[in-house]
Every structure is written in C-alpha cells, then in structure tokens.
C-alpha cells in the first residue's frame, strides 16, 4: 500500500441512492498508532461563494496499531442530493481521518444514482 491511508467501497462504483448502505474498507500504514481515528459521512459545497459542509454521521475506527484495516458502514440519508449548477456543486464524501492524515472517497447520492445537473436556468445575468 503506497498511501498511508485509504478508504474505498467494498463493492459498486461511486453512484449511490438514498437509504443505501455503503460499506467501505479503511486501510492504514502509518508511522505510529493514531490517537484519534474516525470515518465521517458528510456533504460539502464547492463553487463561487462560501463553502458549506454538513456532517451526517461519524464512526470511530478501532486502531489497534500503526497498520491495519477495518470495515465501516453507513446508511445514507434521504437528502440532500448531489447536484451541480454554475454557482454551486454539492458533493458527498466519506473521509477517513487519523490524527492529521486524511483520505477521502467522493460519491454521488441521488435517486437515479446520477448527479443532478441544474440546466441553463442560471444564465449569465444571474451570475452577477
């Protein structure tokens, strides 16, 4: 394992639906046993303005040593859906944090499993 910390789903791709259960494999190879170790399910925004974030669930990872692996499971909520417009994108992710080291897996949460694209309703005039 080249990265000190990784997190990836045990099955499927990055498309998920509300209420799905997502199982991820956390693997680590760190210089020492981390003091704090947890996985966080959250969404965040990216775009033009102030970034927002919402943490939905947190699970402590039992770190018995500097190296190891552990499976974490989260039941996904109903909303918010992953979407993108010109001004803002909402992105879902699970982050694995061991002290100051972190790894992230991003995914799409939407009824069809596809990111919702806000069409051309945001025209150039409204961007100003």
């Amino acid at each position: 394992m080249s990265e000190p910390l990784t997190i990836a789903p045990t099955s499927g791709d990055s498309s998920r639906k509300p209420r799905d259960v997502v199982e991820l494999l956390a693997q680590w190879s760190l210089p020492s046993t981390p003091q704090t170790f947890e996985a966080r399910l959250f969404w965040f925004t990216r775009g033009k303005g102030t970034e927002d974030v919402g943490v939905v669930a947190t699970e402590r990872v039992p770190a018995a040593g500097a190296r190891g692996n552990h499976r974490v499971r989260f039941t996904l909520p109903e909303a918010p859906y992953s979407f993108s417009g010109r001004l803002i994108s909402l992105i879902w992710a699970v982050e694995l944090v061991a002290d100051k080291t972190a790894a992230r897996w991003e995914f799409v949460l939407a009824p069809e499993g596809r990111e919702i694209l806000l069409q051309q309703s945001t025209d150039a005039a409204r961007l100003r």
């Binding site: 990216r46 775009g47 033009k48 303005g49 102030t50 970034e51 993108s84 417009g85 010109r86 001004l87 803002i88 994108s89 992105i91 694209l117 806000l118 069409q119 051309q120």
Partner: peptide, 13 residues
C-alpha cells in the same frame, strides 16, 4: 453544462 466544482476559479481552488 459547466459544473461549479470543475470551475478553475472556484473558491476551494
């Protein structure tokens, strides 16, 4: 459609 998260001038970048 140009997604906000791909914008090279997005705040996070």
């Amino acid at each position: 459609m140009r997604r906000a998260c791909d914008n090279p001038f997005a705040v996070h970048r």
